[in-house]
Amino acid sequence: MADGQGILVIGELAGSELALVTREALSAARSLSGALGGEPVSLVIAGADLGDAPQQGISAGADTVYTVVSPVLEGTPPDAVVAVAERAAQVASPRYVIGSKTLLGRDVLPRVAFRLGTALAQDCATLEVDSQQRLVATRPVYGGSAIAKVACLQTPAVAALRPKSVEPLEPDASRIGEIKTLDIQLDDSVVKARVVDRTERPSEGIRLEDAKVVVSGGRGLGGPEGFEPLKDLASLIGGAVGASRAVCDAGWLPSSYQVGLTGKTVTPDLYIAVGISGASQHMAGCSSARAIVAINKDAGANIFKEARFGVVGDWQKVLPAFIDQLHELLQ
């Protein structure tokens, strides 16, 4: 595939809707298409049931939507999605392939890149076209301690877009596009990694990823008991509780609470960090918050470098008074 044309987006579903991350990827693809003089944008979506997602794909920016519906795709096993994405790339023969750095994308996109004879530009915050029409991406590296710019050397170029880094386009129902069934035979033998059991613990209350306010605690809380006042604070101001990796590694809270590079990415209006030092790998998951507020006894802690407001002090003394005062204010 030496001469590609256009951009192929590897889509994802949220239930039977087109996932928000895919609308973001389509938006990025449309910008790239503009920079390439209007090359076409295609989308591939695969699942056991696609609902209205193909049409939503067109409204969100796709010119062509390739669909695959198969019972093999129930639960979207990565092995099957890799096969679909590879086939779609053969059919569409794109210049660029764009997916999302999600649970599924993390497993699928590197494999797709290597099958197509290249490597993946991972976790991209921005994507642009350079003067030689190469895809160029910026991405955090070294846990967010540095920002790298990488150029893709092969065609197709493959990139994973970091969720929430691009605004999706306003859905436009009047956009015209074509929906095609992708020609691929899928049977169960494609799935080599078989899921035999799954336990989901849906979070109590507001989902961390969606919360407008997040109250996070770190090793400085000293133990699981330290999270009791944090939970009170979160419920008082309608927020969710998060944690640093140190807390989850110590078993104070399950790993579903972890915010950061290898945990969840949160984008609240307000992020309150208590007893968290602010390592770059932690900040990678919360630095898009509109305002960070830190309570830490060490005035030199890195968290204050990214905080809008801070208190240098012992949380055991600061927090109860803070919560009491908020109680009064919010009555």
């Binding site: 890149a113 530009a121 920002i147 710019k149 990488v150 893709c152 050397l153 407001f309 801070g310």
Partner: peptide, 19 residues
């Protein structure tokens, strides 16, 4: 597959107001 064409330190955020 990829070429590194830039490397920079991230810009640090706004100055913290200490209460």
């Amino acid at each position: 597959g990829l070429e590194l064409v830039g490397l920079a330190l991230p810009e640090s955020g706004a100055a913290c107001e200490f209460i």
